[in-house]
Amino acid sequence: MNRREFFKISWGTVGLAALVSGVGVSLAAVIRFLMPSVFYEPPQSFKIGEPGDFPFGPPTFLVDEKIFVFRDREKGFAVASAVCTHLGCTVAHFSSDQRFHCPCHGSVFAADGSVQHGPAPRALDWFEVTMARDGKLLVNKDKVVPPNYRLMV
């Protein structure tokens, strides 16, 4: 290898490395740019009201939060997700058969949220519900609890 060849190869390598790293860093930056740093979305943890706001019997459906609030005289409070685990449609609770039905692809969930029928891959989530200091019920969607979780008030 002579001097001319040496410089040709070295500068070529440096140039190529600069190009590849430049494109790579830019691409990574663009993807990061597209990922929002701040989400202007409702919080995952929120208060839903006083215990007395919720009747016994059929669950109360909270539209914006997409949750069902169950209240039972003996067992207490439980909160189930209304979002189908298949593709995110909103399930409906039928009091006739005590089950959840998804309108999109026909998944059916039992009263405890487990899949009974259809393409849903896993059971409906149950969320932690606790009593806040001001006496209101506090739901935390980040904390998934077992279906037998209950809050006694």
Partner: peptide
């Protein structure tokens, strides 16, 4: 967002895909 139409159908040219998805999403 609170009320999913029943049945919720995609435009016709995606209904083949939706039919497949109704059996298994993956």
């Amino acid at each position: 967002p609170a009320r999913t139409p029943n049945p919720a159908k995609a435009p016709w040219y995606f209904l083949g895909l939706q039919e497949l998805v109704s059996h298994s999403a993956f």
